[in-house]
């Protein structure tokens, strides 16, 4: 399954409360992802919380967008990526 880097912009910053409602929000994202056949691997969030860079596994860019819409998340750009690390050539 291809891996994608999904860039998102949150003009007002991004916040997930560290309590039950935050957990609920994250779980609902995971459930919606499951229906769309995509997996949220992890995300990197900028210091000002206005940009996120999210790693997803999914069948197609359309599935990524559909799931994002279901989760009310913006999408700026989707790039298909591969893992490269310092030991790649070893």
């Amino acid at each position: 399954m291809p891996r994608y880097l999904v860039e998102r912009t949150f003009p007002e910053g991004f916040s997930i409360p560290i309590d039950a409602s935050g957990e609920k929000a994250c779980l609902s994202v995971v459930a919606n992802n499951g229906e769309g056949g995509v997996t949220w691997v992890q995300s990197y969030v900028s210091d000002d919380k206005r940009k996120t860079f999210c790693i997803y596994d999914g069948p197609s860019p359309e599935a990524i967008r559909r799931t994002a819409a279901r989760n009310n998340l913006p999408v700026d750009r989707i790039t298909q990526v591969r893992v490269l690390d310092p030991y790649f050539y070893r």
């Binding site: 003009p11 910053g13 991004f14 916040s15 409602s21 929000a25 009310n72």
Partner: peptide
């Protein structure tokens, strides 16, 4: 964004719930 918040208001959600849904703080 305001339209989204308005749609959420029509469901009778609290600021906290709307925030969780739209990934912003209740203050926003």
């Amino acid at each position: 964004r305001e339209q989204e918040v308005l749609a959420a208001l029509s469901l009778g959600l609290s600021n906290g719930e709307i925030g969780a849904r739209l990934f912003v703080s209740p203050k926003t």
